[in-house]
Design a protein around this nucleic acid. Structure first.
Ligand SMILES: [Mn+2]
Ligand SMILES: [Mn+2]
Ligand SMILES: [Zn+2]
Ligand SMILES: [Zn+2]
Lengths: 135, 135
DNA sequence: GTCACGATTAGACTCAGTCCAGATCATGGT
DNA sequence: ACCATGATCTGGACTGAGTCTAATCGTGAC
């Protein structure tokens, strides 16, 4: 979890991403906290001290990271996408009251009884979202 | 599946919804096809022959139906919500190439190994989305 | 007929996300 | 050092889903 910027530079390179200042900061925002962040939140974090990254670059970069599979997206809120630095197969708790997202390790989770795929289809992944309320 | 408008009027009443002309037509669009439709698609279907329902009413009505649990929403495409006339517990195949959604009956599907909920939390539901590609 | 009240409406508005054309930056060759 | 080149970044215009508002409509009670 305690990622240094140097480690992130390596990780960007391993994913064929030219490690520019902005890209390093955006990766750092996501990886150093290990949280699920919206584009808005990333923009705010990266520009917290002094403005140094534009909205366009944040979106460009998040989409580049997605493409290069450095992060994944989580679609659970109809209003915004969450970006997830955890690319291991895993699932999510989603608190419908607070909007909080929490990871569920996929190891140990099994799904039985799914019907066979239509012919000529191949599974890309199985996402499980456990919607929870605060009681 | 072959819903008559009269049956839908009854169903609306059972859910405490005053069955107006527009509401009946919107319910008919969803229930007669049994498909997952976006608000845009509902608007187009309802106004196919002659314009009779506004965008505002389509959104008002879909949100009313949701509130009264006549339909549910499926969040899987970052660009739009799908509205689902099937309110039984069930899961979905999502074709990431075509955008198609298909139901998976929940009967027979079991999930094992989920961690216990954080204290004071209660499960609202478990959604499984099987993302598939066309091969 | 008039009143009240719920439903519908056009159109302005919001907000996430994209697009574009110009500026800036990094790199390598001379 | 100097320039050329391509990649990156940027402000700001733009798009499209969804919401809001204030005016109008429809219906039933009186
Ligand atoms: Mn800095
Ligand atoms: Mn009609
Ligand atoms: Zn996650
Ligand atoms: Zn469904």
């Amino acid at each position: 979890m305690p990622y240094t910027r140097d480690q992130l530079v390596e990780q960007l390179r391993r994913h064929d991403i030219n490690p520019t200042h902005q890209r390093i900061e955006i990766a750092f925002a996501l990886y150093s906290r290990g949280e699920h962040l919206s584009a808005d939140q990333v923009l705010a974090i990266v520009n917290d001290r002094h403005s140094e990254t534009s909205k366009a670059t944040v979106y460009n970069t998040l989409n580049l990271f997605l493409e290069k599979k450095l992060i994944r997206e989580v679609i659970v809120d109809p209003n915004k996408v969450f970006y997830d630095p955890n690319t291991e197969p895993h699932h999510h708790f989603y608190n419908v009251d607070t909007g909080e997202l929490a990871d569920i390790d996929a190891a140990g989770v099994e799904v039985h009884g799914l019907p066979p795929l239509p012919d000529g289809m191949v599974t890309e992944g199985v996402d499980i979202i456990v919607r929870v309320r605060s009681r």
